[in-house]
Design a protein around this nucleic acid. Sequence first.
DNA 1: GTGAAAGCGCTAACAA
DNA 2: TTGTTAGCGCTTTCAC
Lengths: 345, 345
Amino acid sequence: MENVSLKTIATRLQLSTATVSKALRDSHEISAETKERVRTLASALNYVPNPYASSLRRKISKTIAVVIPEVADSFFADAINGIETIAQSKGYHVLIYLTHESVEKEKRFFSDLQSGRVDGVLLSISVETVATEHIADLQRHSIPIVIFDRVCDDIKTATVSTNDYEAGYAATKHLIENNCKKIAYLSFSARLSITAKRMQGYKQALADNNLLLPDDFVVSCSSGEENDIAAIEQLLLLENRPDGIIASVEKLTTHVYVTCQKFGLKIPQDVAVVSFANLKTAPILNPPLTTVTQPAFEMGKAAATLLFKALEKKNFNLNAEALSIPSVLHVRDSSNKTALQKIQI
Amino acid sequence: MENVSLKTIATRLQLSTATVSKALRDSHEISAETKERVRTLASALNYVPNPYASSLRRKISKTIAVVIPEVADSFFADAINGIETIAQSKGYHVLIYLTHESVEKEKRFFSDLQSGRVDGVLLSISVETVATEHIADLQRHSIPIVIFDRVCDDIKTATVSTNDYEAGYAATKHLIENNCKKIAYLSFSARLSITAKRMQGYKQALADNNLLLPDDFVVSCSSGEENDIAAIEQLLLLENRPDGIIASVEKLTTHVYVTCQKFGLKIPQDVAVVSFANLKTAPILNPPLTTVTQPAFEMGKAAATLLFKALEKKNFNLNAEALSIPSVLHVRDSSNKTALQKIQI
DNA sequence: GTGAAAGCGCTAACAA
DNA sequence: TTGTTAGCGCTTTCAC
């Protein structure tokens, strides 16, 4: 099938491509009659403009990039959903890049994005990302970036996050109120904003309740599944083992549940559990899991909305924006045998 | 920051853009010395070629589109992972389009893709898709398409699926072997290849075991969460209620579990359950869920690999390809109190 | 081994 | 209101 271009239409209608182009973009300088003729033929021929030709000329791509660590995580899946919803409504296209938690990949993506391939970027940094020159580099190319969830203070731009500190505090307080005295915190990587803030909240709640805990109650889990499991097992084998656990990321939940079962520990009687998770199956776990649920979909929408504001108004100052959307504590049996609650944090 | 182009490098080196272009593409007609000078300056200036200019000229975009119903589903999340892995290794970019089960959106996406925006498409059709003209249209523009998971016989192209019929059969047989006599099947949409084939397997297994069941043991669930829940409740309130349930898609699992609990029905004693699902939490559900697990990641990789074969060899015949990667039946407590098994179907 | 010139399909400035 | 011209940044003959 031969491709139809502006020229095809122009020749057939004895017009110039410029006129056809303007007609299709509904320019006021074209007569109603010509517009009509052009539109009719265009749709009859099934004309679809070549976006790259337009992009080359106009220097805008109508495309954004989403750079995230992974998709197989309820948070990111929901966030993409939110992003895609907004992008679709704006007629934008969405490129997906997965870093798989590797800075090297992140850097490669960012370097490529200097090419003009996209008009803006939504980013959630990899766990390895400490230096942020690659991000600043892209900003110097005037590509607006909005960082969501896993933010980074070094990067001067808009952020969309949730109240991680308060959530960590609320989760811990909740466990304390349910008679936990020895609460462990499973960290993902202390470098990551989200885990760090959640941990600060956890520590503050402990301090506010005069609970002093040994150092090994904060367990770092970020060096592979095997190691994570080993670390969790070690924690639960401590003579002075915890009676409460806070899992700072969703994927640790299964390990905690499995390990408890392996050691014959009952949840919540022996160990109460709260996870930062967006699992749709939380209510049907054994036992139902108390979760801190992030507003993933909303965060995706908010981040995309901010990005489009920056794209639409060039004098919009992204640096001034730091949105926070609250998480929700869903109390279920894993931390509490009695009431089912939904607490806005 | 001003953008560096081929021209920038050419002027600085007193060369023509043609030479620079060839040097960067490592053409044999350029001297080693010139290549070296060009490469050095290019990397010093942080030159990144404009993909759209190249695309316009060469008529290839190094980009593929993934058109799927949703992301917030373990199968599609894992599949994207597989797709992205292959795409990254080929230096390709991935555009994501979510149909949210709407043909209208699917059609709009396919119409846009006629523009030359992508070199190929990976597709899993929406539940509403019956007519497939929009897909054939795109094929007429010589864009190779590989359909995965939710295939469609009307479309003449390569497919990657799993052995849905056998999986449906195996799941049913498994329940029968575990003493279920009245097995219900929760369909998603009978039009969809996957649910239809799973159902055929289910029916054949029933027939092979001389189990005759009333029509209302096949329940259609595809008209919204509310309705799905109502339908499942109705099923479990039947006087002659099922003692086994097969959920043909992941998202129905929660509804089944919740409804059973609501009615005080014990899984598996009162009702055994098997779900087609890729839930990472299957082992820690209450009770652990017996699943038919699709090889999502592998299917994504296989589909992408096929697409790239078609992209690389223009005489590669996609129509001849119909790959099937087997699912696995993970037997857990929801269908069986005793042994834990992993059965290759 | 290098360069000049044309052109991919579109848009924008300027004439007519 | 319409058309001419130039050019976005790159690749590709083809000449030198």
